[in-house]
Lab assay of single mutants.
Amino acid sequence: KHCVKCNKAITSGGITYQDQPWHADCFVCVTCSKKLAGQRFTAVEDQYYCVDCYKN
């Protein structure tokens, strides 16, 4: 599998969101770069925000 963000191979520790593979380090808030894996977040038009950034 290849990460949908960076297009590099996922060798271990990847996550899946909406049936797409991601590196955990690539699945981050677009505003603050906080890792979103296992966290609550909001998706708006294929942009992902942590709860704090989305509220602001």
Rank of each mutant, 00 (worst) to 15 (best):
G38T: 07
T31I: 09
I10C: 06
D46P: 02
K35P: 05
V28I: 15
C32S: 00
V30P: 06
G13V: 04
C29I: 01
I10F: 07
C3K: 02
F27E: 02
Q18F: 03
K55C: 04
D46S: 15
D25H: 05
K1L: 15
L36W: 05
D52E: 10
I10K: 02
W22D: 04
G13P: 04
V28D: 07
F27C: 14
W22M: 06
Q39M: 10
F27D: 00
C26T: 00
A9H: 06
F27A: 08
H23I: 00
K34N: 10
K34H: 08
R40L: 06
Y49I: 11
C32E: 00
Q47T: 03
K5C: 15
V44Q: 11
C53S: 02
T42L: 05
Q20A: 12
S12P: 05
W22F: 12
A43R: 09
C26R: 01
Q39K: 12
Y48I: 13
G14A: 13
H23Q: 01
V44M: 08
S33L: 09
R40E: 13
K1W: 02
I10E: 01
A37I: 08
W22Y: 05
K5N: 11
C6E: 07
T31F: 13
R40P: 07
F27K: 02
C26V: 00
K35E: 11
A9M: 13
S33Q: 15
D25I: 04
D25R: 10
K5T: 12
A37Q: 13
F27R: 05
Q39P: 10
H23W: 00
N7T: 15
H2S: 13
T11W: 05
T16I: 05
F41N: 15
S12A: 15
L36S: 03
C50K: 02
A24K: 01
Y48Q: 11
V44G: 10
L36F: 11
K34R: 06
G38A: 11
V4E: 01
Q47N: 15
Y49W: 11
E45R: 10
C3N: 02
Q47S: 06
K8T: 06
T42Q: 06
N56L: 14
A24E: 01
T11L: 09
N56E: 01
A9P: 09
Y48T: 10
V28L: 06
D46Q: 15
D19V: 03
H23F: 00
S33F: 02
K35G: 12
C29G: 00
K35R: 14
Q47D: 12
V30G: 08
E45W: 05
Y48D: 03
C29T: 01
Y54D: 10
Y54P: 02
C32W: 00
K8L: 10
E45Q: 06
D52K: 13
D19C: 13
C3D: 09
C29W: 00
G13H: 08
A24S: 15
G14Y: 05
K35L: 13
T11C: 05
